[in-house]
Design a protein around this nucleic acid. Sequence first.
DNA 1: AGTGAAAATATCTCTGG
DNA 2: CCAGAGATATTTTCACT
Lengths: 148, 148
Amino acid sequence: MDAINWKLLKALEGNGRASFSELGKLVHLSAPAVAERVRKLEEKGVITGYSAQLNLEKVGIPITALVECQVYRTKERAFKNLVLELDEVIECYNVTGPYAFVLKVGVKSMSKLDELLECLIDLSDTNTMMIMSQPVDRTMPLNIAQKS
Amino acid sequence: MDAINWKLLKALEGNGRASFSELGKLVHLSAPAVAERVRKLEEKGVITGYSAQLNLEKVGIPITALVECQVYRTKERAFKNLVLELDEVIECYNVTGPYAFVLKVGVKSMSKLDELLECLIDLSDTNTMMIMSQPVDRTMPLNIAQKS
DNA sequence: AGTGAAAATATCTCTGG
DNA sequence: CCAGAGATATTTTCACT
């Protein structure tokens, strides 16, 4: 992980479709050299994939929320399985503290959110926070990672 | 937003570097036709960008946490400005309820987390949940979006 | 909006330093 | 580990439907 690889990661984080020759100009290397570096970063699992970023609202999902779930002791496995099946769940965190799980969910309407929460209520006590805005959405705090 | 565009969005969500000719085969269209559709999706803001997905651990950020912040009434603006400056903040949600903000943060060590929380404590009461695993990480619940 | 073909770029492979 | 050259594939532009 030299300075060039950091530059490549930052560039690919900002534009996942950047061509190898573009990247090459950025780091003053030839396209094949960049391709080789990127291939190795993928192999090592540093880069796990590439994805288009989509606007949730424009794609018909105007409502997002964070749902804290205090899962009943005996229902942990069932809860995990349920969450994996629900398409509405965008992110799921298994965390320390009384709320063992925090979900980020996206729905088309409040009634759909209601349905979703009913689904969860059998296995956990939930606390829902509606997301009003998201001032920060990085995929990676790269400035931190790179420091020493 | 016809069926073909949904297919393109799903494909690009799964592989943001897919070529137009690959996508063309998938939806039975020529490469230029696909390029035109994708260009329009970008113009309309449905696709907001492309990004490489990176493995936080392998990039030197082994610790992630959710931090709920009950911001002091008079400090909301200052808090927002602070959060925008902190590289450790990966995501920031402005939500309903007593915890006005929920942050997802990534750090290199627990001592760095401590430093970060000290930073926030002047402007808010915080509650920190360490992330132990993340069983789901989609960018988009597309199966939901598409339905009727 | 989409196709098909030609021109311009980009990528891939391989040889060599 | 990288540069350069040639072969291959992809993107882009354009005339036409």
